[in-house]
Nucleic acid binder design. Structure first.
Length: 746
RNA sequence: GCGCGAUUAGCUCAGUUGGUAGAGCACUUGAUUUACACUCAUGGGGUCGCAGGUUCGAGCCCUGCAUCGCGCACCA
């Protein structure tokens, strides 16, 4: 401690007056950037790399406590690896989150100005969204910094910036040219509220009671059918029965004309299809190809007409004066009433049903046939890269096959060197199961905010797909944008400069570690595997550390409607980022949900103060020691030093195996209950001893364990350890603690 | 319907390869002008969900069951 140092070291520890200053110190040092670490010789250029991409938070507002948890896991592993002299890169970035951001801004404008996006026009609306996104971005970056995250901000990326747009177009074009991306007229999930298609993975099923109606189309129709959506039945073109169902075989192949069904004319063919469950309802299924996924498939198999009776606004698009332009829910009741009046209704039974709703808008999904863009996961193509697991160059593969080839590892006993390790390993099965059941991915969205599809339509209806627009006049670009997950699926390599073959890409890809929550395993993780194996012939990451969800004290999800949200910044202001990090990480293993309790944060704030006071005691009681290791160390002190070395080995093993939750608890317990309560208490007497030998031995031991503890604690509690490190004398070639060496295993 | 996970002290959870049941919080009793009250010491508290099996030995491995939670599918 020199004369100019303020006397803060004598007061209780104050995270508020420390953390921002320390973060500035780190940022100014440049050590978040591995290039600077090499330049300043804290990392060897030849050192192995350890790279992580931050799962980019959506620019829809602010971060929640779950992000704080995710950031903590990554920062712990990054700081640990950096201290080991490994070439460590952690790339920050944010996600434009097309539908989420657009619908948020639309709501805001509606509320404040009473206008919708069409009132503003595409250009003006996009300006507003971009402004909102920028503000969210700034808030988010500030929050991440407050957590102490040692991200290389010089490499920050955005899923919708120019470089990432080039990546998206390049990927799209390659997939289009190989026929993996196609445009098709198919039944899709339409969100009438958001006025866009969404993918299967953006659907949330909500359990609801609804009524199963059983009826006949007309008095002389021979078969009764059951449905929960009678209003769609004006679009029926067949009744399907199971081929082995003896009740109906006599009718198969016959066509019945219904002159009046709620004001519409129907022509119903009786067909046999094995997808029909003879046990359900009457065992006969009214087929509505245009408004049901399963009926669409049946319709395809039997070449049935696909009569669309519901439009994009979830209103009836039929001629019948009874139903025309009515909302589906109203139409349902109208048709039911009509059936009762005509004496056609046979039964009305209340049942539990899962309703498909849109994740972002809450709108009830209406299956509609539409012309959209898809990624074909079963399209066969020739694999062009070098060997990947069991897949060889020149082999005929599909995207699905590629993905499975790098997942099928441990659980199959195969363990190729290029396979991905998923922690905890039960998620490997879940990922595999999900990939096996993958269907074509609808990637076009009827939104304005996002990557516009790089396809142009010519004056003679020609189609052109390219990275740049066609040069001739008269071409218009497809107005749709891509699913936000299309750009995020390129994230591990688009952030490193792809499609350019940059040094970063060569050095840091495949990335080493990824820490997503299990809820985005299907949406994001598997799609990154898809894109990386297809476009680069590499896995995107080696180890996936799946983390659970942070819930409130009583185990409920944090949600706006419950108003139980916790702002990480509030916690940091009250207790400090170090305390918050410890509270989030200790005792929470991979994949496990945790309950967040402020009392736990407070306990680790007390721990920070404990560390502070230990350091004060040790430094003031060793200030007359010369910093040279004494030639004689007492037997007892040597025992303490050996114990400390054992702890180093133990914690290092935990860190190597990603058991941060155990490592954190062990160092906490050691520092408080062994170091402070035993070693330090006993040292009091030794320092007062007449014997210089005993005194110096104790001073050396105290100092050595303090120094080691600070190094071990740094990944978990970076601020307070860095702050104390400033005051620590006797360290040769002293650097910031963040780039000092991790204690060696003995 | 198919699959996955959880069940350990009052609460929250660890328990790594099968080898004497652990931590934090809470609670008991006490200490202290102290590096630190954001402190220390001390004590109580467990049929490891239930039943069976393997084993010299099971919280851990196997089988079945119960309860809770999750994912997928179906959802006419």
């Amino acid at each position: 401690m020199n004369e100019d140092t303020p006397n803060v070291f004598l007061a209780p520890y104050s995270p508020q007056s420390t953390e921002n200053r320390i973060y500035d110190l780190w940022e100014k040092s440049g050590f978040f950037n591995p290039d600077t670490c090499i330049e300043k010789k804290v990392t060897k250029k030849s050192a192995p790399h350890f790279s992580v991409v931050l799962p980019p938070p959506n620019v829809t507002g602010t971060l929640h406590i779950g992000h704080a948890f995710e950031d903590t896991i990554q920062d712990i592993v990054i700081r640990y690896k950096r201290m080991q002299g490994i070439r460590t890169l952690w790339v920050p970035g944010t996600d434009h989150a097309a539908i989420a951001t657009q619908s948020k801004v639309e709501k805001l404008i509606q509320k404040e100005e009473g206008k919708n996006r069409h009132d503003l026009g595409r250009e003006e609306f996009l300006k507003r969204v971009e402004k909102f996104a920028q503000e969210s971005h700034d808030t988010i970056v500030n929050q991440i910094k407050k957590m102490g995250a040692s991200l290389d901000w010089s490499r920050e990326a955005f899923t919708l910036d120019k470089k990432r747009n080039l990546g998206v177009r390049t990927a799209f074009k390659k997939m289009y040219d190989e026929g993996i991306i196609y445009r098709g007229f198919r039944i899709v999930n339409w969100d009438p509220k958001g006025q866009t298609t969404i993918s299967d993975d953006e659907i949330i099923y909500v359990e609801r009671k609804s009524i199963l109606y059983t009826f006949k189309y007309s008095p002389d129709f021979p078969i009764a059918i059951s449905t929960t959506r009678p209003e769609t039945k004006v679009g029926d073109s067949a009744v399907a029965v199971h081929p082995d169902d003896p009740r109906y075989t006599q009718f198969i192949g016959k066509i019945f004309n219904v002159s009046d069904f709620a004001g519409e004319k129907l022509s119903i063919k009786i067909i046999a299809d094995t997808e029909v469950d003879p046990e359900f309802g009457t065992g006969a299924l009214g087929v509505t190809p245009a408004h049901s996924m399963i009926d669409w498939r049946i319709g395809e198999r039997h070449s049935l007409p696909k009569i669309q009776v519901i439009n994009e606004f979830a209103k009836m698009s039929v001629q019948s004066p009874l139903l025309a332009d009515k909302k589906t829910i109203e139409a349902r009741e109208i048709v039911a009433t009509w059936l009762r009046e005509k004496g056609l209704m046979i039964e009305e039974k209340e049942i539990e049903q899962n309703i498909a709703t849109a994740e972002r808008t809450g709108g009830i999904i209406e299956p509609l046939p539409k012309l959209q863009w898809f990624v074909d996961v079963n399209k066969e193509f020739t694999y062009q890269h070098e060997k990947l697991g069991p897949i060889k160059k020149g082999e005929i593969v599909t995207l699905k096959k590629l993905m499975l080839s790098v997942i099928e590892g441990k659980s199959e006993g195969k363990n190729y060197d290029k396979s991905i390790t998923i922690l905890p390993d039960q998620f490997e099965k879940i990922a595999k199961h999900w990939i096996e059941n993958l269907r074509d991915w609808c990637i076009s969205r009827q939104l304005w905010y996002g990557h516009q599809i790089p396809v142009w339509y010519g004056p003679k209806k020609q189609i052109y797909c390219g990275i740049t627009p066609p040069t001739e006049e008269g071409w218009t670009q497809d107005p749709d944008v891509l699913d936000t997950w299309f750009s995020s699926s390129l994230w591990t390599f688009s952030t490193l400069g792809w499609p350019e073959n940059t040094d970063d890409l060569k050095t840091y890809h495949p990335t080493t570690f990824l820490s997503p929550g299990y809820e985005i395993l299907p949406l994001w993780v598997t799609r990154m595997i898809m894109m990386s194996t297809y476009l680069l012939g590499q896995i995107p990451f080696k180890t996936v550390y799946i983390h659970g969800m942070v819930r409130d004290k009583s185990g409920k999800k944090f949600s706006k409607s419950l108003n139980n949200g916790i702002d990480p910044i509030d916690m940091i202001d009250q207790f400090g980022a170090d305390a918050l990090r410890m509270a989030l990480i200790v005792g929470v293993g991979p994949g496990a949900d945790s309950k967040f309790d402020t009392a736990k944060v407070k306990a680790y704030k007390n721990f920070a103060n404990k560390i502070w006071n230990i350091s004060r005691f040790v430094l003031t009681n060793t200030n007359n020691w010369d910093g040279i290791k004494p030639s004689t160390i007492t037997e007892e002190d040597q025992k303490y030093i050996d114990e400390c070395a054992l702890l180093v080995t133990d914690i290092t093993t935990d860190m190597e195996n990603y058991r941060f939750y155990l490592a954190a608890e062990k160092i906490y317990h050691y520092v408080w209950h062994t170091y402070a309560d035993k070693i330090l208490e006993e040292a009091k007497g030794k320092i007062a001893s007449e014997s210089a030998e005993i005194k110096i031995s104790a001073q050396y031991t105290l100092f050595h364990i303090l120094e080691t503890s600070l190094r071990l604690l740094h990944p978990f509690m970076p601020f307070i350890t860095e702050e104390i490190w400033i005051y620590l004398p006797h360290i040769p070639d002293k650097q910031l603690l963040m780039v000092s060496t991790w204690p060696h295993k003995t």
